[in-house]
């Protein structure tokens, strides 16, 4: 079910939580809302669910304007960060809740409710938990129950607020792949909020990067990573060193840092006009060769092997640069000649 958001704004007192949000999600898409805490991503999700209200702008879900439609009539699945399970109900009753509260005319008979709940628990891989209470099961299991409960009303649109935020890394990894499969199988449209870029990259068809209440960029994971739209996105994604530099005469000059200049042709992206810039260089975009002390511009502080590469901390003047180097003769303490292969430049 498609979602179209136009010019959406929301203020909390003097704080502008959302400003002029424009976002279109196609039916069947899996979109991640990625941003640091306080960037407005949860607020956006809550407005879509009808749990919060915009000051301006419009939301259409499945072509229907949502203005004045209360949360309970939207039929949207919402999974809360802390699961928000009903503590006094068993897992079974939690999942059955959305069916039991339907008006008598559209409420399925008891046998069908039971069959549907069992089928969902089966699908979530937790059929044996039916009689347990939320506090008697683990975090990962609670997350599955919360998801089953949201899916029981057969929502065409699923909203997830930091669904794996409270789980440990191993459980999170497993659930991630499982959620993606579920999305495809049940032909859902899903929007999920996260501050974990790795999670966003691994799960989403498209990633919307939020910055202080605005969407800074929305694109495929590859594109936001390779072609960040602005300095914020470049700095937020993919661990990059941020260096001040000057773009002039078709090259980047890193002075006063002792780095060799980079020609314009080597750059991934750069502003059209010359002037002061911020250069973003990722860990794998560095090279370092052993050099005699007189020719060296840096010192290798420490290095440890990482998947056939060398994860190195390199002292460049006052700075420490994290670099992912091909395995070589460099050892901790050796002077070396450090140079960037490429960079992404944004006007300073």
């Amino acid at each position: 079910m498609s979602v179209i958001i136009r010019g959406l704004s929301r203020r909390f007192g003097s704080a502008q939580a959302l400003q002029d949000i424009e976002l279109s999600v196609r039916a069947g898409e899996f979109v991640a809302l990625l941003g640091p805490s306080g960037s407005g991503k949860t607020t956006l999700l809550r407005i879509l669910a009808g749990l919060d209200f915009a000051d301006g702008g419009t939301v259409q879900i499945g072509g229907v304007p949502m203005e004045g439609v209360p949360a309970r009539r939207r039929g949207i699945g919402f999974v809360f960060q802390n699961y928000a399970l009903f503590r006094h109900m068993t897992v079974f009753e939690n999942v059955a809740f959305g069916l039991r509260v339907r008006p008598r005319a559209s409420r399925p008979p008891e046998a069908e409710i039971a069959a549907r709940v069992r089928r969902l628990l089966e699908r979530m891989g937790i059929p044996e938990l039916e009689r347990r209470l939320p506090e008697q099961i683990s975090g990962g299991q609670r997350q599955r129950v919360a998801l089953a409960r949201a899916l029981a009303i057969e929502p065409p649109l699923l909203l997830l607020d930091e669904p794996f935020g409270a789980l440990d890394a191993a459980v999170r990894h497993g659930l991630r792949r499982w959620l993606r499969e579920l999305h495809n199988e049940m032909s859902l449209t899903s929007l999920f909020v996260t501050h974990d870029q790795e999670e966003a990259m691994a799960l989403a068809d498209r990633v919307a990067v939020l910055q202080a209440g605005r969407i800074a960029q929305i694109d495929t994971p590859e594109m936001v990573l390779e072609r960040p739209a602005n300095a914020f996105v470049a700095g937020f994604l993919g661990q990059a060193a941020r260096l001040p530099a000057m773009l002039r005469d078709g090259a980047v000059d890193f002075a006063p840092l002792p780095l060799p200049p980079l020609p314009r042709e080597a750059l991934v992206s750069a502003p059209d006009r010359d002037g002061p810039v911020q250069a973003f260089i990722r860990a794998h975009e560095w090279r370092a060769e052993p050099a005699a002390p007189g020719q060296a511009n840096a010192v290798l502080r420490s290095a440890r092997p990482s998947g056939g590469m060398l994860q190195a901390d390199i002292a460049l003047g006052e700075l420490t640069v994290e670099a992912l180097l091909p395995a070589g003769p460099l050892r901790a303490g050796s002077p070396c000649l450090l140079r960037p292969l490429t960079a992404r430049l944004f006007p300073a």
């Binding site: 949360a71 309970r72 009539r73 928000a84 809740f97």
Partner: peptide
């Protein structure tokens, strides 16, 4: 959140 969850599930 429990009340909000109930609302999104269709409860009056």
């Amino acid at each position: 959140e429990a009340e909000e969850a109930a609302a999104t599930l269709g409860a009056s």
